[in-house]
């Protein structure tokens, strides 16, 4: 791996800016995501910042099953993000559709519409689990980068 790409990977790992999007959750996972951003958990230690605009964000944090109505919108938000971008599915519903799987108005998990990099199960997923999931995603990124350039 050249020095420049090493520095870039380091910077990407140290500064994941997230954007939070509710694709049809019952609000429980959203509360837990918001809790993870409070001073108690202090995610700024890892460089995580919540951004308002998808253009600024690196990680799209989705919660809830993808409803038919929101499916187009979540794709649009995903396409508005600048490369390199990652998606984290928070909660059982976002991972697989959960208890809503098979409903007439549900497409399924987040991965039915956009590629997902990390799955964080739980109903709702606890803030510790969410932070752990994001950190693991970043670590896997580093490993993948090292493997790709070998």
């Amino acid at each position: 791996m050249s020095l420049a790409s090493k520095v870039l990977t380091w910077a990407r790992m140290k500064s994941p800016w997230i954007i939070h999007f509710n694709t049809g959750a019952c609000n429980a996972c959203d509360i837990e995501i918001v809790a993870a951003l409070t001073p108690t958990y202090d995610v700024e230690r890892f460089g995580v910042q919540l951004k308002g605009s998808p253009r600024h964000a690196d990680v799209l944090v989705c919660s809830g099953p993808v409803t038919k109505q929101i499916a187009d919108r979540v794709v649009r938000i995903y396409e508005q993000m600048a490369e390199p971008k990652f998606v984290v599915a928070v909660g059982t519903c976002a991972c697989s559709g959960g208890v809503f799987d098979g409903c007439y108005n549900i497409r399924g998990g987040t991965n039915t519409v956009i590629p997902v990099s990390a799955y964080i199960p739980g109903c709702p997923a606890s803030p510790e689990a969410i932070i752990d999931g994001v950190v693991k995603l970043l670590h896997s990124l580093e490993v993948a980068e090292a493997a790709a350039t070998k």
Binding site: L8, W10, A11, R12, K14, S15, E44, R45, D58
Partner: peptide
């Protein structure tokens, strides 16, 4: 809070 590490603004900028 604990706050960001010393290299945080630099990492943000490089990213």
């Amino acid at each position: 809070r604990v706050g960001p590490p010393w290299f945080q603004p630099l990492a943000d900028m490089i990213k």
